[in-house]
Simulated assay, not measured.
Amino acid sequence: MDRITLRLPSDLTRRFDAAAAAQGGRSRLLRRLMETAAQASLPASAEPPSAPLTGKLTLRLSDADLSLLEAEATAVGLSRTQWSVALIRRRLHDRPQFRRPEALALIEVRRELRRIGVNVNQIARALNTAVMDGVVLDLEVAQLGVFQAEIAAWVEALGEAFEGNLAYWVPAS
């Protein structure tokens, strides 16, 4: 987004602010006036510009609120903007919001679960196709039990990660 800066006499600024107060503020009135001027100068066949696909949100916070925001964002390793975006996305999409290291860890968990699943499938296929004596079969069944426990531990850890993340973004009562 472009920015235009200009210097005005104090009296003109005060009068403009008074007029703009009833129309949504200085920025809104300036944009509307500029849009009207730009539309008036377009040829009749020109199409108006399309709306942007992304937007910018500007927040004005008190010094105390800004300090709290900074502290909260720093505590979880995010910038103020990243923390604010995560909070908004959590509310809008009702999904966990992870920092990059957390997301990479979850990718690793997924990779491990996939590896374990491949091993379990190989063992199950071997059990279905091979004729084994009692000792070998017992070893294979025991290995399946180990994989089952490992999968259960990873799934539980994933659930705790998601629950912890979701709980973080819920306002404290």
Rank of each mutant, 00 (worst) to 15 (best):
D2L: 00
G159L: 11
A46N: 00
V120S: 02
V141W: 04
M1D: 04
M1H: 03
Q23N: 13
L12A: 11
I88A: 13
A161D: 10
T129A: 09
E140M: 10
E47C: 01
S50H: 12
S67Y: 09
D138S: 13
V155L: 08
I151T: 12
V146G: 02
E35R: 14
I4A: 08
G55Y: 09
L61H: 00
E112N: 08
S67F: 14
E140P: 06
V170H: 10
R3I: 00
F98T: 00
L104G: 01
E163D: 12
G24F: 01
A105D: 08
P101H: 02
S27Y: 03
R90N: 14
A103L: 10
E112W: 07
A161N: 09
R115W: 04
S10F: 05
D133V: 01
N119I: 00
G164T: 09
A153Y: 05
R111T: 14
L33P: 01
R90F: 15
R110L: 15
L87E: 06
V120E: 05
T13S: 14
L57N: 05
S84E: 03
A21P: 01
R31D: 11
A157L: 13
R125H: 12
G24S: 01
P48G: 09
L12F: 01
Q122D: 03
R99H: 08
R89T: 07
D138C: 06
A152V: 02
A75M: 07
Q82C: 06
S62R: 02
L127F: 01
N119F: 02
L137W: 02
R26M: 07
V146L: 01
A64C: 08
P43W: 05
R114S: 13
S27T: 13
E70V: 07
A37D: 12
S10W: 09
A46F: 08
L68P: 00
F147M: 10
R15N: 06
R114E: 13
T13F: 07
L113S: 06
L158R: 10
I4W: 06
L104M: 12
E72L: 12
R90Y: 15
A86I: 09
R100F: 12
R91V: 15
D138E: 12
L78H: 07
S50R: 14
T81R: 07
T13D: 14
R28A: 13
A22N: 08
E150C: 03
W154E: 10
A38F: 08
A71Q: 11
K56C: 07
D17P: 03
F98N: 04
R80E: 05
T81N: 11
R3L: 03
R115D: 08
E102L: 07
F162I: 14
A126F: 04
L42W: 05
N165M: 01
R114H: 15
G77K: 05
L106H: 04
G145A: 08
R90H: 15
T58D: 02
L113K: 05
V120A: 05
E156N: 10
W169A: 02
L127N: 05
M132I: 04
R111G: 03
N128A: 11
T129W: 03
L66T: 01
